[in-house]
Design a protein around this nucleic acid. Structure first.
Lengths: 186, 186
DNA sequence: GTTGGCATGTAACTGGTTACATGATTAG
DNA sequence: CTAATCATGTAACCAGTTACATGCCAAC
């Protein structure tokens, strides 16, 4: 069988279909409360990508209108399933990449006086705190509910995210304390 | 004074000029060993952006040829310095965003059998391990050398990065152990 | 003498976002 | 009745990367 190479957003959509989402809109909604933190998605990506997947026979589309409101219900095909599994098993790991304006600021913080440095660190910590709280209170419970149906990895990932944010929060808290004590770069 | 709004790559370049890089090439080289992990940059971004900064009077350019090899030496102006400081002090925090194919795979790992899940987790852990080692052995020492000259935040950021990768590594190690013991989703 | 690093720049492309455009259904 | 949400799609734009193009200088 020919190996099908797709980009990550395509696998995300195949995966969401497998998890029960059927319309493009539903895929986007599901992504917003789960993969958003490590793979954000917009509707303008979802619809064209679904059309492409249909052309390639990785999903099938059927009409699923609700009253007069049009809706398409997509389903993953065997070919689609095979492509998804092959990707999940492939050993090639893309290097992690992230971009963050906050950390960039911190990197350049020697340019500003002590009080501003301290304020910056505080802001970064409170941002990490907000992220931790949000993950723990909003995302983890949803993922845990899924886990009861046997789909466990969303909960694993939610917890990884929440814990990592919490770690960053503690780390920045320690930095703040050190700065407070030491009067670095006044 | 008119508030100048620039995008993060522009501030990165202003900051690198402040830290002693003078040519576009040098900025790119410096970014590759420091900001790469939270703000990667390519030469095709650096040169046009420097030209733009010069047009806006945030940097000045002078000729700095080395023999017959052309080179431009840039310097941050007072206006440039002011713009950088204003950005560093501004309270608005852009939300952290990162994209990672590895975590996306983990999120969808319920689709593959137990052995493959375990292999995936192992790969993610070893990737985190490699990142930790690289940061600790390559990046942190360079940043520490800078710190002796009084520029301390690059070392702070390098340590934050190294520690966070190490945390992820431990976390994935625990997950691996749990999976190994529990035979989740066989 | 030849390889690798220094040095600058542009063109084409890719991946992704925001804004636009439209309309139905449902919950308050 | 009206606001929010469901639902689909396109067009324009933006940020960033890769590939191309060129050539000098230093080290081995």
């Amino acid at each position: 069988m020919l190996a099908i190479k797709l980009k990550p957003p395509a696998y995300l959509m195949l995966g969401m279909l497998r998890l029960g989402a059927s319309s493009g809109y539903a895929i986007k909604k599901a992504a917003d409360v789960s993969t958003r933190f490590f793979w954000p998605t917009s509707l303008a990506q979802v619809y064209p990508e679904l059309a492409r997947l249909e052309r390639e026979g990785l999903v099938t589309r059927r009409d699923d209108a609700h009253g007069a409101r049009a809706r398409s219900a997509y389903q993953i095909t065997e070919r689609g399933e095979a492509a998804l599994l092959a990707w999940l098993r492939s050993t090639h790991e893309a290097p992690l990449q992230f971009r963050d304006e906050g950390v960039l600021r911190l990197f350049l913080a020697d340019a500003i006086p002590y009080a501003d440095q301290l304020a910056l660190v505080r802001r970064l910590r409170s941002r990490a705190h907000a992220a931790t709280v949000h993950m723990r209170s909003e995302i983890v419970p949803l993922a845990d509910a899924l886990a009861e149906g046997g789909t466990r990895y969303p909960a694993v990932v939610a917890r990884l995210g929440a814990d990592t944010y919490a770690y960053a929060e503690r780390w920045l808290g320690r930095l703040e304390a050190e700065l407070g004590g030491e009067r670095l770069n006044d």
